[in-house]
Write a protein that binds this DNA or RNA. Structure first.
Length: 735
RNA sequence: AGCGGGGUGGGGUAGCUUGGAAAUCCCAUCAGGCUCAUAACCUGAAGAUCGUUGGUUCAAAUCCAACCCCCGCUACCA
């Protein structure tokens, strides 16, 4: 019996939470907390919505509402989503409470008094019309590097240089257009550098941390910490408790982490035992676990510990359980499928346990993982439904049909005893994995038990026994029900809703949560009437992304190069004029591959409806297609001459809207070699796909639009195919 | 290009920190079994140059170096 504080990174109240939040921090924390409660530890789990900071004020300005309104809206939405996911907090608050403000104030003052803060004055733009200091991104002006007229104070969109707002020429306020003036402004800085040695010792002593968390932190520490400002000239946030700082607020990164402490205190107040918070923060036997995504590591392994060290007397994080990212790339995720990925939306389509199962099975614990609908369906249907759900259901329905009550268990034979031992082994495995925060492994040991259940059930074949020896049959069903019950208990941290249902269906009273870990040992209620079982999970169906429709967004044209010049402002770029039926300007990065003379005679394939973009100050109105691999590059060109402007449709519909560069990048165009056969095959390097195009020269390399297991050779009307001006390996990607 | 994460049977993965016999599991394939169960379950088989090259070692998927490729964020990518 011990005490555990579970802290979860604070979701930002500027949008609904998505699978990344759940699989990265909320879900592992919930499993860990549930597991600890199950084994009888004292646990509280705390977090809340991070309500302050610039992005929320930006959203608020956009919608012309108060920041508070935005923050409250998403707080409510997320609170509900968290609840619906079965994520069980002892306190889920937010950072805009009186309590939190007070706590932040206290910590701030303590650090200030003990000399861990310093004041520094820096110049900053102030707009007298708006009556406020302007964050760098709200200042606009001419870029000192490229003369672009609408550069922002943090960065120039045109040439990409990082800027300081003071460098801008003719700066103006982006909100009202007035000319702002530079004013000195004073801020507090946290003297992080002074903590370096203590932190090094702390991190080096934490050998139980995940390797990537520890290595990353040590790396940052060795590079040297810099003192960081912890106040800002903004109006949305926690006030600075110092005279003369009435117009300023505490910077969110400093303030939000203090939420762990303030939330614990709020929890203690709510249960009317105010001092209970200290049992979780001052008692050195209490371990604190922090669950977050890898983008958040330094805040929890450096900044928060530094604040705690400065404050004194409070426990440092025992473990910082940072997950990697679950990526949502790969096109399969697009909204065009009618399924987006935020949690409120996901839960309208799938039950929380199904979502939880997949997110655990695919949790990015040690490396990034990829969410895909195909995988989601496969794992749900093949593992959760077919192994776990099916074992429970075949046991329950057979028992119900033949007995109607929980059968009486007679003498056990060797196999039965082995089965019961197998339950103990699963318990032990799961306990070990979860104690080490290995969630996938832990759930695997539960699934393995379900699979064992199927093996046992098959081996004892109750459908035969029922005709020959009903008493013995009752015994094996009793053992099977034991396994079901164990699955309910062991599965409860992962799939709490179904666990309760199983618990009830095998005839147990109360709940798994109440019975705790010992539920596996609590005897079945023999003779208790059963209810007609309903399958726990249904198979899921997800829409498949079909066909080559996505390529229809492209409007490809034949283009002839008119002239080629060097980019005035970049060494690697050319500025080209190309005739695609009309002359356009294209900026390209081909300098390493082609001389201007070589290029000037080329006939190319151009994406004509790409969103124009400024590259280093020059507007590019399109993009030429080239295949690239390793150090090699080849341009796409028609196999025989075509007039400029000829559409390259590849037999598909042609898009009329402009497409973004990002959308373009999601398309998979590759160099493929035609392999013949019927239907013809196309070798695209790592694999061979079927080719939807009829003719073509076997062995020749063509540009191909790839979609899953099939591909279309890119061609213009008259079946003029697209080839390359140089040799390039099969499989090279076109971009 | 920079930062981060990877490359292990057809697909997806475990193992790598702390080198060591026949490399894990899921799906797909093939052969069998069962018929209680949601065409679900169980058994068996085939299938891997552990990205490439070099190094350290008695021994490398595992450690070191270089290179190649893939993914995410960023960018003088278009």
């Amino acid at each position: 019996m011990s005490r555990v504080l579970v802290c979860v990174a604070w979701p930002y109240a500027n949008g609904p939470i998505h699978v990344g939040h759940v699989t990265g921090s909320l879900l592992p924390a919930d499993i860990f907390a549930r597991f600890n409660r199950l084994v009888g530890n004292e646990v509280i789990m705390v977090s809340g919505s991070d309500m302050h900071g610039a992005p929320i004020t930006v959203s608020a300005d956009k919608e012309k509402v108060s920041p508070e309104e935005i923050a409250n809206r998403y707080h409510e939405i997320n609170l509900k989503a968290i609840n619906d996911m079965g994520i069980c907090f002892d306190m889920y608050t937010h950072t805009h409470t009186e309590n939190h403000g007070e706590e932040v104030r206290k910590v701030f003052v303590k650090l200030m008094e003990d000399g861990y803060l310093k004041r520094m004055t820096t110049p900053q733009y102030h707009c007298s019309d708006c009556g406020r200091f302007l964050p760098d991104r709200y200042v606009e002006g001419r870029c000192p590097h490229c003369s672009y007229d609408r550069a922002r104070g943090d960065q120039c969109d045109s040439c990409g240089m990082d800027l300081n707002a003071e460098e801008l020429i003719d700066a103006r306020c982006q909100l009202c257009g007035a000319k702002p003036e530079l004013r000195d402004t004073e801020h507090f800085f946290l003297k992080l550098s002074g903590f370096t040695d203590q932190l090094l010792k702390y991190v080096e002593g934490s050998s139980h941390w995940r390797p990537h968390v520890r290595a990353f932190t040590l790396n940052v520490l060795k590079e040297g910490l810099i003192d960081r400002p912890i106040t800002r000239d903004i109006s949305w946030g926690v006030p600075v408790p110092v005279q003369g700082f009435e117009s300023k607020r505490i910077y969110v990164w400093f303030e939000a982490v203090i939420g762990y402490l303030s939330a614990t205190k709020e929890w203690a107040k709510a249960k009317a035992s105010e001092d209970d918070w200290s049992r979780y923060w001052k008692d050195e036997d209490c371990r604190s676990y922090y669950f977050l995504g890898k983008d958040n590591i330094v805040f929890h392994t450096i900044i928060w510990p530094a604040i705690l060290l400065g404050n004194g007397g409070l426990n440092l994080p025992y473990d910082v359980v940072a997950n990697q990212f679950m990526n949502l790339g790969g096109q399969k995720f697009s909204k065009s499928m009618g399924v987006s990925i935020d949690i409120p939306d996901l839960l309208t389509k799938f039950s929380p346990d199904v979502v939880r199962y997949y997110l655990i099975a695919n949790m990015p614990e040690f490396k990034d993982s990829e969410f895909s609908w195909e995988d989601f369906a496969q794992r749900t249907n093949g593992e959760l439904v077919a192994t776990y759900g099916n074992f429970i259901h075949r046991t329950l329905s057979f028992t119900f049909k033949n007995y109607g009550v929980v059968p009486t268990r007679g003498a056990l034979d060797e196999r039965d005893r082995a089965a019961l031992e197998r339950i103990s082994r699963a318990e032990k495995d799961m306990r070990e994995s979860l104690s080490a925060c290995r969630f996938r492994d832990a759930m695997k040991s539960v699934m393995d038990l379900a699979q064992f259940g199927n093996q046992y059930f098959d081996a004892v074949a109750p459908w035969t026994l029922i005709r020959s020896d009903k008493e013995r049959c009752g015994t094996v069903l009793g053992v099977s029900l034991e396994i079901c019950k164990a699955l309910a208990v062991l599965g409860s941290p992962f799939m709490p809703f179904s666990s309760e249902k199983i618990w009830h269906d095998v005839g147990m009273e109360g709940s798994v949560v109440e019975s705790g870990w010992n539920g596996t040992k609590t005897p079945l209620k023999e003779g208790k009437k059963m209810e007609k079982p309903v399958p726990l999970f249904a198979k899921v169906e997800v829409p498949l992304s079909g066909g080559f429709a996505k390529y229809s967004a492209l409007d490809l044209r034949i283009g002839k190069v008119i002239e080629v010049e060097r980019h005035p402002n970049a060494d690697k770029l050319y500025v080209m004029k190309v005739d695609i039926g009309r002359p356009i300007t294209i900026v390209t990065g081909l300098k390493d591959f082609y001389s201007a003379e070589e290029l000037s005679s080329k006939t190319l394939v151009i994406v004509s409806n790409l969103e124009p973009a400024k590259l280093r100050g020059v507007k590019s109105e399109g993009m030429l297609l080239a295949a690239e691999v390793g150090g090699g590059l080849a341009l796409l060109t028609p196999e025989s001459d075509l007039p400029p402007g000829t559409p390259v449709t590849s037999g598909l519909e042609v898009g009329s809207k402009t497409i973004s560069f990002k959308e373009f990048q999601e398309l998979d165009i590759r160099v493929g070699s035609l392999a013949g056969g019927s239907p013809p095959k196309l070798d695209i390097g790592p694999r061979t796909v079927s080719c939807a195009t009829e003719r073509g020269e076997v062995g020749r390399k063509y540009a191909a639009l790839v979609q899953d297991e099939s591909a279309v050779v890119m061609h213009a009307k008259g079946d003029i195919k697209i080839v390359f001006d140089r040799d390039i390996p099969v499989g090279a990607r076109v971009r």
